[in-house]
Design a protein around this nucleic acid. Sequence first.
DNA 1: GGCGTAACCGGACTTTACCCCGCTTATTCG
DNA 2: CGAATAAGCGGGGTAAAGTCCGGTTACGCC
Lengths: 204, 204
Amino acid sequence: MKQSDASWGPPRPERADAARNRQHLIATAREMLAELGPDRLTMDALAERSGLGKGTVFRRFGTRAGIFGALLDDGERVFQEQVLCGPPPLGPGAPPLDRLVAYGHARIRFLLEHREIARSALDGRQAVPAGSQSPLSRTHIRMLLGQIDLGPANLDLLAVQLTAALDGPLLLYLSATTLTRSPQQSERQLSDSWQDLVRRVCRP
Amino acid sequence: MKQSDASWGPPRPERADAARNRQHLIATAREMLAELGPDRLTMDALAERSGLGKGTVFRRFGTRAGIFGALLDDGERVFQEQVLCGPPPLGPGAPPLDRLVAYGHARIRFLLEHREIARSALDGRQAVPAGSQSPLSRTHIRMLLGQIDLGPANLDLLAVQLTAALDGPLLLYLSATTLTRSPQQSERQLSDSWQDLVRRVCRP
DNA sequence: GGCGTAACCGGACTTTACCCCGCTTATTCG
DNA sequence: CGAATAAGCGGGGTAAAGTCCGGTTACGCC
């Protein structure tokens, strides 16, 4: 397997040193994030601390948001795997409505577990990475909606609406400067209202 | 009406020169936006073109996003007036469910009418105002929800969800680099799916 | 009308994301 | 193994956001 499979991934395999640098940069970014907070995690500082050049940092991540995106993607890969081929009700095998509810719970849990990073990503003056419309979420929700009998409805737009309805409260919670409620309590509330919304929308 | 009504607005009346400068800055910003596009509308350029100092620009708008916010607020004031004391079904007097539907239609229409500005606001490397979850929308939706019998439900969170579900598709449409559909067609689609969602959520 | 104060103005300064281009090095092929 | 080459690397350079503070000006009060 060279670059023959055109379906996915970078056409060329990453060069060895590049891959090593990416690893190193992500690790360093994690350190700095935990140690200094998101504001002090600047491109220059990351370059210097990792002992690499500024250009390298930008080539790897493209933009500042790319760093946080990369940090999130690390975990997101595992998450998506669970969704696509994990056990029900999250994975295949359960009724689509149950999967829809479970997906929301899982996403809420995932983002709350990584809330430090997720918050950093939208912290400051930066474009929202997955915030506005994470395409993976939308695609999956759209797919599940197609398996539910909803009568006449624009499923594509409904999927966008539900994705937004799932992310909206999360973003609101994450962007709140003072997190009034405990994560557990919030997870409960967010999950409950997601379940309530989905049930309301999908009942016959 | 000076500053006697404590409910809204800056506690102190703006100084005369400050007000004049604000007007002038907003007008100049409109010109530049139409003439140069959002990318070339920088704080420095705005300051120079308006003949004022950079400090002034920042004091008036706080941040770059503040400029676009100010531009939108101009029209939004009229819009909010319609919502609060205009004729039904948007204004008071109609059943709350109808008002909810009408509110969505009105907001969609409003943002599509000002889509150039709205798009500019989220264009580039800007924090999405949806992250802040347009609080006026949410408040109004929350109020209307309170007048509908929905059984046991967390109305606050439901309001957040619906606000997001209203804004999400709009943002998606606005941020699309190539606007495939005509504004009229999009307005129709967006309005229809909003109505559909609200009906689904609120039916007994 | 004169005065004190507080808000306002200006523009230099700092910080930081992002670009550019000559140099270095990993990879590949004879 | 050694040369060709293409990707990767480095760090100085640019532009634009946001800050600061000394000087100026409008407003309230006497």
